[in-house]
Design a protein around this nucleic acid. Structure first.
Length: 106
DNA sequence: CGTCTGACGATGC
DNA sequence: GGCATCGCCAGAC
């Protein structure tokens, strides 16, 4: 893990997302920052769609608390239902990041 | 090595 | 608060 974490940006993002517990969500910007590049939020998304299909990307949302453009989970409704199943609170059609934003420092 | 793209973010209107 | 535009960084071609 130590060696791997220093490997590349992609691996860090993968590791972070893999550690997101149920009932908690993270923003792409947050993950990108933890990965070492606070401006590379889009890169996180790119990694999401192509690599690491075993990770709970459905717990990853953008800063608006919504989901990304053209999600592939079967529609935004599926994502919302899935997160609600994990005790994630919702504000209208957006995730209540204010309450469910997970911090790895915990 | 140069260029385009992209599951985003911030700012402006 | 939502929509439009620019900007950023890293990966793929």
């Amino acid at each position: 893990m130590n060696e791997a974490q220093n490997k590349n940006f992609v691996y860090r993002v993968t590791a972070i997302v893999a550690e997101i517990p149920s009932g908690r969500v993270m923003t792409y910007g947050q993950i990108a920052t933890l990965a070492g590049s606070p401006r590379a939020a889009r890169i996180v998304g790119g990694i999401a769609h192509f690599g690491a299909p075993d990770l709970p990307w459905h717990r990853v949302v953008n800063k608006t608390g919504g989901m990304a453009r053209g999600y592939s989970f079967g529609g935004p409704t599926a994502q919302r239902t899935l997160l609600e199943s994990e005790d994630v609170t919702f504000k209208n059609d957006r995730v209540d990041i204010d309450k469910c934003l997970w911090n790895p420092h915990e």
